[in-house]
Design a protein around this nucleic acid. Structure first.
Lengths: 300, 300
DNA sequence: GCTATTTATGCTCATATTGAGTATAAGCCG
DNA sequence: CGGCTTATACTCAATATGAGCATAAATAGC
């Protein structure tokens, strides 16, 4: 009855470079950093850190658990028992061009609504989903699924785009047969890079978690350099969420929450008036850290 | 190097009975329902459902993953490899007095700030924590730990009580040696029932997750009967969060979000004017479901 | 030097949301 | 009937939010 299991640790390691969110990959972008839990690992987190740091050389800041999977897809041999995958979200500061980093939006172009490429991709998806539901026999099912498409992809502006529904959107596209999870279908009809196994889905889970978390916890600062201007901070937030932010309101909210303090330094090369430099000071203000953070994320 | 693992599934099954949140236990309240993942289970969720329904007879509504643990405390024998525990939060409607149900606040009396018993417990904790930090050598550490106590337990009204920090509070008490996790220390100085292994900690994780989730997703309705009055709904929310809610504002927010619709029925025996009965209608309004829910949770 | 352009930063204003309270309705109990 | 309870509608002030105007201070082109 009871079977022994193999445990695999998988990391969605994210950094932001030149205002583009990136994820660490191996195998030419087809796999996330991952490896089996070993007896030398003192804990699951330690195991993830070991695997990731072996591949990047970076110390990782924030690490948090994402999800534990054990689908029947993940069966090993009949006698060997099942494979269980424990996934983690890890954040690190900007890197100096090591290999393995790939843009988030290479895998999920439709999630980058800020850019023309993202909007074009959404147009394609809209048409394909329309065709998908049109081909359904049952009218009630057709209506319900179209409703789902409309809310998830904000079709027709009836509903606002919700940037946190990365996973739900991916799963809808997967159900509709518009993405190839295993990468073995070269005629995948929606733009975007595929990954092996369910790694693309795990990446979606990590993106969704991070987009949700930056709204109420000051985790963005794990991705920022020691000193930064407020516009740099805003650009990072925007690139992660894929949504525009009203500049003046963003500053207002950041300042009034006292998450940052001036370093006294000035960034000269802004292309305009020089900007003040700030540093994160929420670590010491533990009260505020636990109380949570608010970020204004407006619609395009 | 790579070791095989035993997987244990653990459920924090919650229901609300007579406005008191309860958790399903076994072994006279000393363990959460749990059992090993078996090869007959089609998925992890299915395994949890199987274990829980075997013990309660109830169909469970909402099930969501909480956390996966693999502490070194959880070692089996040297050769047998480690034990991994995957915990789940499960919700079910009110039950008719089966055995095994225990009040949340038997284990965490201090989390029930609404009641006098809860406030008394907090007074005791405040004194004990004060003594704990006073006994520290390093002044800097003492200040930092006292700051932590103040923010987590809202000591001295400098910070508002945050009902979601159940786990952080428990871990602080544990660090301070004020609770006995294994239940083998009869002289545990803080009120509250103990559990075996780390089950009390897992319960804390579940409580924290549920308290956080009811604020932005309509999961409360999983705990409600088919028809209910708005006061009944409010009482359930209050008992889960352990915090008072302003009645009129609560109604306003629930109504304007259109999460419920009138059934046309009337609850006569309210002790005052009869109340209208409502039912949850958010399942059909998927847009609103995905968009999220807001609940006003004020301070005492 | 002057002007257009760019970014930084301060401030205003209408609107929406929230917290708190008042007022009235409609049942029960003695 | 008056006194109690709960239900429900509405008001009002304080805050928060979304959107925009205005000014400051740099650079680039002429």
């Amino acid at each position: 009855m009871t079977t022994q299991m193999m445990i695999e640790l998988i990391a969605v390691l994210t950094a932001v470079r030149d205002d583009v969110p990136q994820v660490m990959t191996i195998d030419h972008g087809r796999l996330l950093p991952s490896g089996p839990l070993e007896s030398t690992h003192r804990s699951l987190q330690a195991g993830v850190r070991a695997w990731v740091e072996r591949q990047t050389g970076h110390p990782i800041g924030h690490v948090e658990q994402l999800y534990t999977f054990a689908d029947h897809d993940r069966l090993l041999g009949a006698e060997q028992g099942r494979m269980i995958a424990i996934s983690y979200l890890a954040l690190t500061r900007s890197h100096a061009g090591e290999t393995g980093w790939r843009d988030w939006y290479d895998y999920f172009p439709w999630e980058n609504c800020k850019t023309d490429a993202g909007r074009d991709c959404l147009t394609i998806i809209e048409r394909l989903l329309c065709k998908w539901v049109a081909g359904m026999d049952n009218a009630a099912v057709r209506v319900r699924q179209w409703q789902r498409c409309v809310t998830l992809f904000a079709i027709g502006d009836m509903v606002a785009w919700n940037d946190e529904l990365v996973l739900q959107r991916y799963e809808l596209l997967y159900e509709a047969g518009l993405v190839a999870e295993a990468g073995c279908t070269p005629e995948s009809t929606v733009p975007g890079r595929a990954m092996h196994h369910d790694h693309r889905r795990i990446l979606a889970t990590g993106m969704a978690r991070l987009r949700a978390k930056i709204r109420y916890r000051p985790v963005v600062f794990e991705l920022m350099p020691e000193e930064f201007t407020l516009l740099q901070l805003q650009r990072v937030m925007e690139s992660l969420s894929g949504v525009h932010i009203h500049k003046q309101n963003f500053r207002r909210l950041i300042m009034q929450q006292q998450l940052v303090e001036e370093t006294g330094g000035i960034e000269e090369h802004t292309g305009g008036r020089p900007a003040r430099l700030y540093r994160f000071c929420g670590e010491v203000r533990q009260a505020r850290y636990l109380a949570g953070t608010k970020i204004p994320l407006a619609q395009p």
